[in-house]
Computed example of a mutant assay.
Amino acid sequence: MELEVRHLRVLCAIADHGSLHQAARRLGLSQPSLSTQLRRIEHALGGQLFLRTRTGCRPTPLGHAVLSRARPLVAELAALVTEARAAAARATGGPQLRIGATASRALPGWLRRLRTRVPRTEPTLQMDVSANSLLRMVATGRLDMAFVHEVEGSPLRIPPGLCLRVLVEREPQFVSLAADHPAAARPEVRLADLAGDRWMVDSTVDGEWDAVCRALRGAGLEPAMLHGDYLTAYSLAATGEVVTVSQPTARPRSDLAIRPLQGDPIGVRLLLAARSEAELDNGYAELEEAYWEAARQAPAYRERLERSDTIRAPHAPRPPRKRPVGVGP
């Protein structure tokens, strides 16, 4: 077996995520497929590159040596591709605005506004459950900006040189549950109301699993916890199999209720990141408008905003908060 660039990307992804499961999600592979690739790479190099433990993977001394050579090669190739695409865009007269984002109801409105307000610019979108991965892509020039969320209690790893602008300092996270769940009759749900329910959480979202567990422990609860992506979680919640955490901008369905949690025990900070303030200016105003449009369309969140003194209501704009970053969030 001859090593290729894709094999080096595999090694970097495993090292960055510290987990075969999360690295597989990032690379769009199944975990068994990634495990097989890793074994083949280790066989080709003649030694073990990662130690597998119950808490994840960490590089061996040989792994550290290989990664020290692999990372510059992967970064250099990424820069080459970025520069080539930029040159091609300039040649055709159609510059691209390369956007990354974690999941958000604001994305359709943001893209629509960018197409309307930035003439001859076609935004492209890169989705990822990992905010840290998106921030690294901005720092290495693979993206122009990224809209991400930082889960309270799990600070993001901000690469040096990035600039951040805070869209919402603390967005409370809601809960999704079956429309016929007894707690759905309440305008606000207590965690104690969900003591008999199983929770499903996407553990590949940076900080999410820890935040939900902290909130449940704080309420004196230790429910069954299931790993799963949120598309699956919402489907199971609608049938009463589980409950799950939800962004407040999510819209209710006939079979699914979105409710605030009493005391707002789980929160996230919403950020736009770029390599300069000028680049942030290219997309922040459109993102702000799109976010509050999405907030107005979510009944439970709209009501919370109208009553809250700590979250800005969508009809009361304020100047954006600018924050150059060099030492972390």
Rank of each mutant, 00 (worst) to 15 (best):
V10P: 03
A13G: 11
A15G: 13
A15H: 12
H21D: 13
H21N: 04
Q22L: 11
A23S: 12
R26S: 11
Q31Y: 06
Q31D: 10
Q31N: 05
P32V: 06
L34K: 06
E42C: 02
H43Q: 12
A44S: 09
G46R: 03
Q48W: 04
F50H: 02
R52V: 09
H64G: 05
V66L: 13
P72S: 08
L80M: 11
A84H: 08
A86D: 08
R90S: 10
A91I: 15
G100R: 08
A101S: 15
T102P: 02
A103D: 05
L107D: 08
P108W: 03
G109S: 10
W110I: 01
R112Y: 09
T116W: 00
R117M: 07
R117A: 11
T121Y: 01
P123E: 07
L125R: 03
Q126Y: 11
D128K: 00
N132D: 12
A139W: 12
G141N: 01
L143A: 06
L143V: 10
D144Y: 01
A146N: 02
A146P: 07
H149D: 01
E150M: 09
V151S: 04
G153Q: 15
L156C: 09
L156P: 11
V166Y: 00
P172L: 08
P172E: 12
V175K: 15
A178T: 01
A184G: 09
A185H: 05
E188R: 04
V189H: 08
D193L: 05
D193E: 09
M200H: 03
M200Y: 07
V201F: 03
D202T: 13
D202M: 13
D202A: 11
V205S: 00
E208L: 15
V212I: 14
V212L: 11
A215E: 09
R217L: 10
G220F: 15
G220A: 14
M225G: 09
M225S: 13
L226D: 14
L231K: 07
A233Q: 07
Y234P: 00
S235N: 07
T239Y: 09
E241N: 06
V242G: 04
V245S: 04
S246Q: 02
A250G: 02
S254G: 02
A257V: 15
I258N: 01
R259C: 04
L261W: 05
I266T: 08
I266C: 06
I266D: 03
G267A: 11
V268Q: 06
V268K: 04
R269E: 00
R275N: 00
L287D: 09
E289C: 01
E289I: 00
W292D: 05
E293C: 11
A295N: 13
A295M: 12
Y301A: 08
E306C: 14
R307G: 02
S308F: 13
D309N: 05
I311A: 02
R318K: 06
R318A: 12
K322E: 11
P324A: 04
P324H: 10
V325W: 04
V327C: 15
G328W: 14
